[in-house]
């Protein structure tokens, strides 16, 4: 290659190819998403824009670089298909026979304890075919069963979310701050985990008071410490004595702190969507632990 224009052309072709692949094509696929009823509960519109104060809080989150330590993406490693036995009905022996005949891995069920502690996950992590056979077998023998589809992965097991994050979760945010490091916990569903605004305010003021051993730096610059005076502020924060200001003073959150707390509380992407199939009945508290 002894011609400069040839080098230019190579670079141009290479970069435009990657631009078409990684900017234009995804723009066609996910850049035009709208608020839709693409949810398992078709009465619900998703995603929804954040309320005004929370939208302002997004800017506080951006300004202070919170994304340097917190991600906002729940990673889903796969799904697990489970069969839950809800009620055994009147004929436990028939249910046991039906389950064995369903050819889903049971050779014989003669332990009476098998039908105790219902509802119970009798076929954790099975295939959809096996789940259907077991379900039909149990139904025909008079038992009540349910097939549940549960998103899987360490993030979900940590209750950081009920499903993996999808493109729609971020539709109305500007900027979108996914974060790339988990110095602190993932925040994609922190509003579902910790819905109390006051918890967040106190946590911003004195993280170590709320979460023992937290590595988060206190964000006291989001608060005013002022003389309480004749009319104490109704917004004043109830602070524990260890971090309380001098007597007669109160800690009043600035508007930025209130906005940031409102934003954190608004972080909740638990709405089930088609991209991540899951059984609606299963809540975050349902466990996938193997049957005992």
């Amino acid at each position: 290659m002894n011609y400069g224009p040839l080098v230019f052309l190579t670079a141009f072709v290479a970069l435009s190819a990657s631009w078409f692949g990684f900017v234009l094509t995804p723009q066609i696929q996910i850049g035009r998403l709208t608020e839709s009823t693409n949810t398992l509960n078709t009465a619900e519109l998703y995603p929804k824009a954040r309320p005004g104060q929370a939208a302002q809080g997004l800017q506080v989150y951006r300004a202070n670089g919170c994304a340097a330590c917190h991600t906002q993406q729940t990673v889903q490693e796969g799904t697990s298909i489970d069969v839950y036995l809800l009620e055994v009905g009147t004929n436990a022996a028939a249910v046991a026979t039906a389950l064995v005949n369903a050819n889903v891995g049971f050779t014989r069920i003669d332990d009476p304890g098998f039908f105790l502690n219902l509802p119970k996950n009798i076929l954790p992590g099975t295939t959809i075919e096996a789940a259907k056979r077991a379900f039909k077998g149990a139904q025909s023998a008079g038992a009540k069963a349910q097939i549940r589809i549960n998103p899987q992965g360490p993030d979900i097991a940590r209750h950081w979310g009920v499903r993996g994050s999808v493109a729609a979760d971020y539709l109305f945010d500007q900027p979108v701050m996914l974060g790339s490091q988990r110095v602190g916990p993932d925040l994609s569903n922190v509003g579902a985990r910790l819905p109390d605004v006051n918890w967040h305010l106190l946590h911003l003021y004195a993280p170590q008071q709320v979460v023992k051993g937290s590595l988060m730096p206190p964000h006291r610059f989001l608060f005013n410490v002022s003389k309480a005076g004749q009319h104490p502020s109704p917004d004043a924060l109830q602070v524990p004595p260890e971090v309380a200001p001098a007597p007669g003073y109160e800690v009043v959150p600035k508007p930025e702190a209130l906005a940031l707390a409102a934003y954190l509380v608004s972080l909740n992407s638990s709405t089930p969507v088609f991209e991540t199939p899951m059984t609606l009945a299963s809540s975050a508290t349902s466990t996938n632990s193997p049957a005992k």
């Binding site: 900017v23 035009r32 493109a167 979108v176 996914l178």
Partner: peptide, 19 residues
């Protein structure tokens, strides 16, 4: 251009940032 002048929506911002 794609982040501030004609801002793209949602996760496309992250796509542009990664690219």
């Amino acid at each position: 251009l794609l982040l501030t002048v004609w801002p793209v929506r949602g996760l496309m911002q992250s796509m542009v940032v990664w690219w």
